[in-house]
Design a protein around this nucleic acid. Structure first.
Lengths: 101, 101
DNA sequence: ATAGAGATATTGGGTATCCGATATATATAA
DNA sequence: TTATATATATCGGATACCCAATATCTCTAT
């Protein structure tokens, strides 16, 4: 784990984005990949991208998984909430001025 | 060059940030590193980070350099302006909701 | 029970990002 | 001129990002 130009200590910008999306609504992997695809205007992330990212966040203790039939729903832990809050603050400070007023 | 979770085709988030900062004011490398350090609340990027990033942007035709005594001042080209505009749009769409309303 | 579909997971490989260390260049001070 | 400080640049290595391919697992339909 780095600190990086990416975003704090959560596996870079992808981890940050995932954590943010999960904070709004717990989702399973494919659902998450779909949401990211829409936001980025690209095709869905490959399994080789999304699952390792989720695994990393889980190992950091930022998310937990809960089996729900065929899928696994991921949601933030308290640690994850806290890390996201910090990362958000930094993100906003770093990119201040980019969003239109 | 990829398309990436980073930001479009400008060497990732760092390139994006650099381009954004240069669009507000032409700067030389160390000045840029200082500005980024303030925004991120970290120490200045190492030379091994900032100069390759600038070199990459130059090779993409997004910035030009002009020697000014001891320093080299970088500024955006028209291509750079255009690329930044596109990247900003994508950035805003991708991270919509992260900035407080 | 078997087949199919969809979700999850891993592997291998290529590129990007970034740092620390080192090297080079340029301007200023002594 | 020589020394010093600052800016610029490159190198080696570690991690992150991402994809394509492959494998496993779970539910549903037949």
């Amino acid at each position: 784990m780095r600190e990086g130009g990416d975003c704090c200590d959560m596996r870079g910008m992808l981890g940050f984005l995932i954590l943010f999306l999960l904070s709004k609504k717990p989702m399973h992997g494919q659902e998450l990949a779909g949401e990211i695809a829409i936001r980025k205007g690209e095709k869905k992330l490959s399994p080789g991208t999304i699952y390792p990212a989720l695994k990393g966040l889980k190992e950091l203790g930022f998310i937990v998984e809960e089996r729900d039939g065929k899928t696994i729903v991921y949601s933030l832990t308290d640690r994850g909430e806290k890390a996201l809050k910090l990362a958000k603050r930094k993100f906003i400070k770093t990119f201040f001025g980019i969003f239109p007023e």
